[in-house]
Each structure stands twice: as structure tokens, then as C-alpha cells.
Design a protein around this nucleic acid. Structure first.
Lengths: 228, 228
DNA sequence: TACTGTGAAGGCCTTCACAGCG
DNA sequence: CGCTGTGAAGGCCTTCACAGTA
């Protein structure tokens, strides 16, 4: 599976590669689908191969967290799904705030799929008076000045930055000052944070440029190396 | 800098790491800003450090493509920016089609920033009659059945998939059958493509889950109270 | 003098291969 | 017998350190 984020900068505590965590989310989704289809057991081959992951990689990934399989049999779908949920932390609900309610922020708030992963977009903020007071998918848009109070009172754990590039750093600093330790940034800006703040960037332009670069260099003649 | 995509599966032709290309886009943005500020020359230290990249890494990245600096001086901002643009391929315009014009697709079409990178969202498609015929930011939404004809006639190089998970694979296959070789997928689905098709995934849920997992494992101690 | 370009070293992740167990 | 779990091997990227140059 290919995902959209970079990788090799930060690591989780006990030497767990960030890529391993990303793959865990993919395993969990596949397990949920298998479970819904009534399948009770899978082998590492069956679980990993459709994700373009080698069976050895899957087993190694799981081994960072413990032992979950039955020798000679494989993994019980329901049990492994529950274990991964617990590992990821999505066995309980986490509150996420969206700061910046333009087109993108609105689209995120309207998306109903996050709750499947126990991620609740529970608060929204903006500094534009024309937006403050609107209610999007049941979530009222408040003045960003109210964020500090809300962050603590409403147990907000993660902030999604959907503001424009020029204010991204300032808003991120404000969130960090409020005790927020995880930020997902959509602005095409290079945000600098203290090391203990977890920051992920989703940069659509960067992704498109990367695709274009590969198109330009590989064109189509010979392309053999790849991961399928 | 941290970016939102995975990494280690595909490579560009002459053994160039995908992460190198992602960093190139970051260097280019910084150079553009420096140029706008009237700065004519930078050292690898000055260019890389604000991006959380080591100077050696920057020089190694550039060395994959040639020699761009002046020993003892550094890099001329304008020249290096032009070189990177050429390397990325964004020294000319590329046409990008958006398939799926819900909230997300609309937000992307409305975003004015892509053109700064010579990426032109020039076409939009959907299969929902209620959406077909609308015009978003000057781009008319057409029936997705018209995509094959449009792809060739309008030189579309990249497709952005903003459809729902259940139809993502089918739409991607359709695009590939039309000769599209680069796809940026926003659906939280595991799309399988032939090896010569470049695929990037932007999966917001996966990013949030990864952040939450890091919070859970690193988060200060482990209680949910972080009012400090 | 100051900084680039680069071979070599080092580190980290992935892959391999097999021991071990149901 | 089949498949997991894992130490060891391998490969790739990053970091180091210095030769070389304006």
C-alpha cells in the first residue's frame, strides 16, 4: 500500500517505524472488511498480499507489539482487529478540532467516515466573522479566540489545520501553546514545531508534483521496478 | 520537513528515492520565497535547515540530478529554482482531471494555488446527474462517461480520485484504460494498479490514526488529562 | 577561506530462512 | 504438515568527512 506521507523523521517510542504504524491502519481496515464478510481466520499471506505488503513484513510489524497469531493456523480476524485497534488507540473516541473552515475544512467536517475510526471532528474554529456562527454537520463554527478554552474543556487531542499558508505557523504555535500535541496540516507551508509535537502534513500540490516528476522521468518506456 | 505520504515502494528511474523528490518540491518552495525576498544566493545550510533537512542531505539530493552550486559560495537562488522546476517537470503546465465532485472535489477545484506549480485542474467529472452541468471555478462538471474522450483530446496527465471508497477501484481502472498513468487517490481504499501506473494515496483517516497512535504511545505519561 | 560534491561509513528497515509449535 | 515468530542477512538511504575549487 502506498500512503501519502513522508516517513523517516520521527519515531514512536520503542523503536517502531512510522511506516509500521501506517501499515497497521491498513491491516485493520482489511480485517474489518473480512470480518464483515464473515471470515474468521486469515494467514499473513492472505492479509498482506492484497495490500502489496509481504507476509514477512506483516509478521514483523505485528511482532513489534506482541504475538497475535496461532502457529500453523494464522490469525483470528476479530481478535487481531481488536488488538490493532488497541495498539492504535482507536478503541476509544478521540476529539479532533478543525481550524479553518473554508471549502476544505467544511468538506472534512461533512465527511461521515471518520467516526468509523473513533475520530470525532467535534469542534470547528475560524477567524472570519462571515463563517463564525455557521453550523456544519452539527458542529458550530466558533471564533478561533475561543480555541484555548475549548481545547481543555472539550478534551481536544488533535488539530486539523485547514488555514491558509501564511497563518499556518501562527495557528500551529497557538495550538501547541494550548497543550495540543498532534497536528495535521493541510497548508502548503513548512511548519516548525518543538520535537514533542507530532506533526503530519498533507500537501496535495507536493503529491501532484511528485507524480508529475515520475511521469516526466519514467514516461512509460521501461518501467519494471515497482511494487504491485 | 515531514510530508504525508508513504515512501519505500516505488522509485523513479535512475535509483532516485521517492523521498528525494518530495524534498525537491520543498526546496523549490523555499527558493521561490527567498527569490521573492530578493535573496540571490544560499548555502546548503541556509536552504536545508529550516526544512529540518541536513545540509548533506540536500547536497546528496541535488547530486542525483547534476551539479548546481558554486564551490565556496553556495547556490544562486534563481538558477537552482529553475533547475528544480525542470527536474520536477513543472516548468510546463500539466492538465489534471478531478473525478468525483462532492465536497472534497469541489474544494480542490476551487483552490487557486495549484497553478503556482503549473498544475491546472482543467476538467471535472461525476456520475451524479445532480452535479453534472454545474460549473466550479470555471470548470464544467461532465458525465464521467465522457472521460475517455476528454482524456485524450484534452491531454490530461493526472487524475485526482475524489469518489467514494466503493467505486474508487473501478474508476481508477477506467482511467488507466484511457491511458492515464498517474493517479492521486483520496478514497480510503486500497487500490491495486498495474506496475507502470503511478499511484499516490492521501488518506486523512490513516494520518489521524497514526497521530493518535503516537499520542497514545508517546503522549506524555498515558493519562488522557493533559490540561497542563 | 568557505562551501560544494562525493566516496565511504553507518543505521535502519525489509527480506530471508528456519526453528518451533499447534 | 502449515504457518507463525524471529534472529540474521541484505539493501537502501542518510550521515560523515574530506578532497577540491572559486
Amino acid at each position: 500500500m502506498k500512503n501519502v506521507t513522508k516517513s523517516r523523521e520521527q519515531k514512536t517510542p520503542p523503536n517502531i517505524p512510522l511506516d509500521t504504524i501506517r501499515r497497521m491502519t491498513a491491516y485493520l481496515r482489511t480485517l474489518n472488511r473480512l470480518g464483515a464478510d464473515g471470515i474468521a481466520t486469515v494467514s499473513s499471506e492472505e492479509l498482506a498480499r492484497p495490500l502489496n505488503v509481504s507476509p514477512a513484513q506483516l509478521r514483523k510489524d505485528l511482532s513489534y507489539f506482541g504475538r497475535f497469531g496461532t502457529t500453523g493456523v494464522g490469525y483470528r480476524v476479530a481478535d487481531l482487529a481488536a488488538s490493532i485497534k488497541s495498539i492504535l488507540g482507536t478503541d476509544r473516541v478521540w476529539n479532533v478540532a478543525v481550524i479553518g473552515v473554508g471549502k476544505l475544512g467544511t468538506a472534512l467536517l461533512d465527511y461521515p467516515g471518520f467516526l468509523d475510526f473513533n475520530l470525532r471532528l467535534s469542534a470547528a474554529f475560524d477567524n472570519n466573522p462571515a463563517r463564525i456562527g455557521k453550523v456544519i454537520n452539527g458542529v458550530p463554527v466558533r471564533d478561533v479566540a475561543q480555541f484555548p478554552a475549548a481545547a481543555a474543556a472539550e478534551r481536544i487531542s488533535v488539530v486539523i489545520l485547514a488555514v491558509n499558508s501564511s497563518s499556518a505557523q501562527a495557528v500551529a504555535d497557538m495550538a501547541a501553546a494550548c497543550g495540543i500535541k498532534a497536528i495535521l496540516n493541510f497548508a502548503p507551508a513548512n511548519i516548525c514545531m518543538a520535537p514533542h509535537i507530532y506533526l503530519s502534513n498533507i500537501d496535495v500540490s507536493c503529491e501532484l508534483e511528485t507524480l508529475v516528476c515520475r511521469l516526466k522521468h519514467c514516461g512509460e518506456p521501461e518501467s519494471e521496478d515497482n511494487a504491485s
